[in-house]
């Protein structure tokens, strides 16, 4: 397993860590329940994208300013925490994670850098780590950290990125700061609205208690899945940000 943060020469991979390859059991089994998920090696932003980084993107791509953005791609609260379309204002710290961004906007940001959003399995794989273990999900402390964040009212001011210890891969803030978009968020659950129809949809309404308690830590992660599955691609919320990922072969290795 690669350990140290991957330091590449070009802009894309600067600030990214190499994660994987590996295999693990996801909270969302793919096909057969017990099948392990294989995660090819990939690169992941060490930190969530910040306000100032997103502001730079906006300046280079004015069509993603909140006053210009197509309504199909963002909802009305898009970047609403900023003072103006092109200024953060006094109440927003440049180094806080950017929030109130839609999936479309996050995707555009990553694509502008030649990157992409991480896929759920990549995100979950990277987030299973603690400081010293690749998979810390059996550790009650790991779980409690997640739950403590859930129990913190979302109206409190966000911390700056990178303030807590990095995890096993050198990645910061996967837990405890903001929710994060993943590329395939809308494929996590069947969008059917009937809780009697079983399958993935059971997770949405009843399943977390029923199917995941074999691994007691799973429900904490499933709540993230529930949040993601409540979203549509144009939605923005004040606790939802993102980071980018890249395939290692696309990088500069």
């Amino acid at each position: 397993m690669l350990l140290a943060a991957f330091a590449a020469a070009d802009d894309l991979t600067d600030g990214m860590a190499t994660v994987g390859p590996g295999e693990f059991h996801s909270v969302i089994p793919e096909g057969k329940e017990d099948a392990a998920i294989e995660v090819p090696v990939f690169q992941l932003d060490q930190r969530p994208v910040t306000n100032v980084e997103f502001l730079d993107f906006i300046k280079a791509h004015p069509r993603w300013q909140r006053s210009n953005a197509v309504q199909l791609f963002v909802d009305t609260s898009y970047l609403s925490h900023w003072a103006t379309a092109i200024e953060l204002g006094p109440d927003v710290d440049a180094e806080q994670p950017v929030i109130n961004v839609s999936w479309f906007a996050a995707t555009a940001y990553c694509e502008a850098l030649g990157a992409r959003l991480p896929r759920w399995y990549e995100w979950e794989f990277a987030a299973a780590a603690d400081r010293t273990h690749a998979d810390a999900r059996d550790d009650p402390l790991w779980r409690q950290q997640i739950l403590n964040w859930y129990a913190t009212p979302g109206s409190k001011s966000l911390s700056l990125v990178g303030q807590r210890a990095a995890n096993f891969y050198g990645v910061y803030d996967l837990h405890g700061l903001v929710w994060e978009w993943v590329d395939d968020f809308n494929a996590l659950l069947v969008a059917d609205d009937n809780r009697e129809q079983g399958g993935a949809d059971k997770i949405k309404f009843c399943g977390a208690g029923a199917i995941s308690m074999e691994r007691k830590e799973d429900y904490a992660v499933l709540m993230r899945v529930a949040l993601l599955s409540s979203l549509e691609a144009a939605y923005t919320t004040q606790n939802l940000g993102f980071r980018c990922a890249a395939d290692l072969s696309e990088g500069s290795l």
């Binding site: 909802d75 609260s77 964040w149 859930y150 913190t152 009212p153 979302g154 929710w179 609205d193 009937n194 809780r195 009697e196 949405k204 309404f205 709540m223 529930a226 949040l227 599955s229 409540s230 979203l231 549509e232 939605y235 923005t236 919320t237 004040q238 606790n239 939802l240």
Partner: peptide
């Protein structure tokens, strides 16, 4: 932080409204 919905036991219909009211923050 969380998405929420509502199941009203007074509703005659799927999920008591839960399936129609799954709502993201904001």
């Amino acid at each position: 932080k969380m998405p929420h919905n509502i199941d009203l036991h007074a509703v005659t219909g799927s999920g008591g409204g839960a399936s129609s009211s799954f709502t993201a923050p904001g």
